[in-house]
């Protein structure tokens, strides 16, 4: 039972990590929290799902479509809600509010396009069970874990080794200095927003596979979880997002298994309030 729950927690948690990385990347370069993140990637994932159910597209195409649509929505966000606010001297919280507005628009668009109801994922992918001695694992869980872990490694490598990754880190460190050093910060920001949203798209697909269903309101819920992970891990810390996503996943699964399932959604925010009390900069955050 314990080990089984741990595996479930890991699976759920790894998707939270992917979501939170999206928040943290954008916070890193822009210093803002993108409140539309959750809605953006659930929209993308729903497009993928509709392609499977309505147009009989193969899974791979649907997956790709989900990621691309999420990325495009990220681009639209950048050009409508973020960039116009960078030009002038706007109040500190303006971008938070404009992303909240964008989130509402995306959520309403989902309701109008896809309806408010839950849509089943008709893929029987990975429903077979594997017996690993102490635990039995669904194939889908293995896929989710594998994809998440591989993506995180790729991202880690990309951020630390490639030219673009270095430009992103430089911009995160100091926007002005980076632009003096000849880094095209606008390009960096666009790239970051696109990558963050695309990662979200992947997370959305994996979650769809895990729960065999997608609902428009999941954007809000999962977005909240990503936010919780962001604060837990320390705003701007990629390592923090990775580790704390897993921690949240495990905490949730155990609170359901050994506690009261109806409080599952409160776990994330309970942890936030706790961490803000004892270590406001987050587990992996630098003290400011």
């Amino acid at each position: 039972m314990f080990w089984q729950q741990l595996v479930n927690g890991l699976t759920v948690g790894s998707t939270y990590s992917l979501i939170a990385i999206g928040y943290t990347l954008i916070f890193g370069v822009l210093g803002i929290i993108n409140m539309a993140h959750g809605q953006i990637f659930i929209f993308g994932s729903l497009v993928g799902l509709v392609l499977i159910t309505e147009a009989d597209m193969p899974l791979g195409v649907a997956f790709l479509a989900a990621v691309v649509v999420s990325a495009i929505l990220g681009l639209i966000l950048e050009y409508t809600a973020l960039r116009p606010l960078r030009k002038k001297n706007v109040p500190h919280l303006a971008s938070l509010i404009s992303t909240i507005g964008f989130a509402i628009l995306v959520e309403e668009a989902m309701h109008k396009l896809f309806g408010a109801d839950s849509r089943a994922v008709p893929v029987s992918l990975g429903s077979e069970m594997y017996d690993l001695g102490i635990v039995q694992v669904r194939g889908v869980d293995i896929i989710i874990l594998a994809v998440s872990v591989v993506l995180m490694f790729v991202l880690h490598f990309w951020i630390n080794r490639t030219k673009m990754g270095k430009a992103i880190r430089a911009t995160a460190e100091n926007n002005e200095t980076a632009s003096i050093l000849g880094i095209n910060t606008n390009m960096v920001i666009v790239t970051t927003v696109v990558i963050a949203s695309a990662l979200g798209g992947v997370a959305g697909c994996l979650i769809g596979l895990a729960y065999s269903a997608l609902i428009p309101t999941m954007g809000l819920n999962l977005g909240f979880k990503g936010l919780a992970v962001l604060i837990l891990g320390g705003v701007g810390s990629i390592t923090g997002a990775m580790v704390c996503g897993i921690i949240l996943g495990i905490a949730e699964v155990f609170s359901v298994a050994y506690g009261d399932s109806s409080y599952r959604d409160a776990v994330a925010f309970g942890l936030i309030i706790l961490i803000l009390l004892i270590r406001p900069q987050g587990l992996f955050g630098r003290k400011v």
Binding site: I33, H92, I231, V235, A268, I272, I273, L276
Partner: peptide, 14 residues
């Protein structure tokens, strides 16, 4: 700023 916004959002959800 941002932390307060998220913390109070969390409070509302809890």
């Amino acid at each position: 700023g941002l932390y307060l916004a998220i913390a109070t959002l969390g409070f509302g959800e809890v």
